[in-house]
Nucleic acid binder design. Structure first.
Lengths: 284, 284
DNA sequence: GGAATAGTGTCTATTAGACAATATGCT
DNA sequence: AGCATATTGTCTAATAGACACTATTCC
C-alpha cells in the first residue's frame, strides 16, 4: 500500500480493519504473515475469572448470593459465584454461565421476573488468590422473583445473605454473618455501593420487583437498598413526575395481607436514566 | 479445629485468613498441602493487558492521548497506551507504568499539575485481538499541565487527538481523525462518557486545571467536556454554594491576554462528591 | 471610550420537604 | 369501629434559570 509521510493529525485510511462479524481483516500481506507466525505463549501466565454479585431483596432486606466453598483454598468460607472464562465466550456470557452452574439461577430475559446485569469492576491484586495470579472481572446482577438457589459444582450450599450481616471491611466473621473468601468482601462492597448509587439516577429499582408492582413495593425497594425511610407521599409524587420511570397498567390489588386500600399497579417504563433523579435526602 | 454442623446462617470462625500483608494464611494442614501441590497450568491461556484513556484539555477541546502503532497488527493505526500486566504488579501500577513507558507521562502525585486515575472497565471479547485472547483492563486518567507526549517503545508517535475528531462508533477514518486499533473506539467512548457523567456529581473537573485556577477556567473545563455553553453567573453561584468544591486562595490575576477584571483564584477543596451536583441542564 | 472578563443582586418558576385530609380495603 | 395502606391537595423554603447592573483590566 502506498503511503506518504503522515502528518500529525492527518487521516490514514478510510475503511475499518474490523469485519462485521468482529474478526480482523489484515491490511497487508506482511500483516497476514505476522499473524500466522504469532506465538501466543510469550505472555505472563494469568488466569481470568468472572465473579457475580447477585443482589436481591428478601423480607425487606438487601441480600447477596454467596456459595460455600467445598474446595481449598478458603474451604468452608463463602464466595461469590464465579469461575474461569472459557476461550470462546465473552466475559458477560461467562458471568451468566457461572450463575447458572454455581447457583442454579437463569437470568430472566423478560416476563414477570425482572433482572439486570452489568460489569462492576476488575480485581487483580497479585496476592488475591493464593494459588496463582488470578484477574477477576466482577459483574453486578440485580434480580427479583428468584427461586431458592441450589448449590452446584464445587459449592457446598448457596444462600442469600443480608448485606448488613457481612463485614465489608475485611470479610472476617462479624457476629452473625459469613466469612468471605479471597477479596470478595471488597467486591460485595463495591457492588452494594454501585447499586445504591444507581438507584438515584437510573430506573434500576424496577429490577428488584416483579411487574406489575405498586409504588409501595417500589418504595420499599429504595428503603431496603438505601437503609432509610422515605416520605411516602413525596416518593409517589416524584416517581410519577419522572418521565418514563413507570407506566400504569390500570389494575389494582390489595397491597398487603394486613389490609389497606388497593394500590394502582405499574410496570417499568422506557427510561433508563431518571430525570430528575431520586436523590437520597441525607446524602452523607 | 473443632466445628459442628454449620447452620445456614451461622458463623464459621472469627479470624480472617488474610494476613495484613495480603498473603493467605491456610486454615489447616490439608489446605497447605493442597496449595503446595497446585498446578497453575490447568487454566485457559489468556493475556491480560491494561490500556489507559488519558483525557486532557488542549485549546478548549477535550483530547485523548493515542499512540501510533509501529508493529502488527493494526500497524499505522492509533491505539491507547497500554501493554501486558507483569506477574508482580497490581493492575493500577501497570497502568501507571505503561503510561510512562509508552507516552512519557508521569502521573503527578501533587503540585501544580493535577491528575486523577481510576479503573474504567474491562474488555474481553474473544475476537478483539487477532493474535490471541486478550482481556484488557482499561483505566481512565484525567490530567492537566502535561508536557508534550513523547513516543516510547513500539510506538511511532504519541499525540493528543480531539475526541470530536474520533469516530466513536467503529474507529474508522472520519474525515480528519485517526483510525483506531482494536476495539479502542469503544474504550474511548466509555471513557468520555464516564468523564462527562462524573463531572456532574464529583469534583473531578479540578483534575483538568492546574491550581490555582479561576472559576472561568473551571467553567471552560465543563464547557469543553460537555460541549455546551454554561451560564456564567449561575455557574459561579452553584460552584461556591457546593461545600468543599473549591477554596479561595485570595490572590487575583488578569484572566486573559485580552484584558478583563482579574479573577479570584481557587484551589481544589476536600469534597470528592458534589452536594448538590452540577447538572447539565439539557440533560437529554 | 470600547471590549472583555469577573462579581453581585434580584426576580420568577420549579422543586423538595412536610403535613393535612380523604379513600378503600382488612380484621 | 379501628387499623393499615393509598391517593390527593396545599403550604413553605430552597433552588434553578434568566437577567440587570457594577467592577476592573487591556487596547
Amino acid at each position: 500500500m502506498v503511503r506518504g509521510v503522515a502528518p500529525v493529525s492527518g487521516p490514514r485510511r478510510n475503511e475499518s480493519r474490523q469485519r462485521a462479524d468482529g474478526t480482523y481483516r489484515p491490511s497487508s500481506r506482511a500483516e497476514s504473515r505476522f499473524l500466522a507466525a504469532y506465538d501466543a505463549a510469550g505472555f505472563p501466565p494469568v488466569a481470568v475469572t468472572v465473579d457475580v454479585v447477585v443482589l436481591t431483596i428478601r423480607q425487606g432486606q438487601l441480600c447477596v448470593l454467596l456459595v460455600e466453598r467445598g474446595d481449598h483454598p478458603y474451604r468452608g468460607a463463602w464466595a461469590l459465584p464465579g469461575g474461569f472464562v472459557t476461550p470462546e465466550e465473552d466475559l458477560a456470557e461467562a458471568a451468566r454461565r457461572e450463575l447458572a452452574e454455581e447457583a442454579g439461577l437463569e437470568l430472566p430475559v423478560t416476563g414477570g421476573a425482572a433482572g439486570h446485569i452489568e460489569q462492576l469492576a476488575t480485581y487483580g491484586s497479585p496476592l488475591r488468590d493464593p494459588r496463582m495470579r488470578v484477574v477477576s472481572v466482577a459483574y453486578l446482577a440485580l434480580l427479583s422473583g428468584l427461586p431458592p438457589p441450589t448449590a452446584g459444582e464445587g459449592a457446598e450450599q448457596a444462600h442469600f445473605w443480608p448485606v448488613e450481616d457481612i463485614d465489608l471491611r475485611d470479610g472476617a466473621f462479624l457476629g452473625s454473618g459469613p466469612e468471605l473468601a479471597f477479596d470478595h468482601h471488597l467486591i460485595v462492597a463495591d457492588g452494594v455501593a454501585r447499586a445504591r448509587a444507581k438507584l438515584e439516577y437510573t430506573s434500576l429499582a424496577t429490577s428488584f420487583v416483579e411487574a406489575p408492582f405498586t409504588l409501595g413495593e417500589l418504595r420499599r425497594v429504595y428503603e431496603a437498598v438505601w437503609g432509610v425511610a422515605l416520605h411516602r407521599q413525596n416518593f409517589t409524587r416524584k416517581v410519577l413526575a419522572t418521565t418514563g420511570f413507570v407506566v400504569p397498567v390500570g389494575r389494582k390489588r390489595p397491597s398487603s395481607a394486613a389490609g389497606g386500600r388497593p394500590a394502582e399497579l405499574y410496570r417499568p417504563g422506557d427510561a433508563v436514566e431518571l430525570h430528575p433523579p431520586l436523590r437520597r435526602s441525607d446524602h452523607r
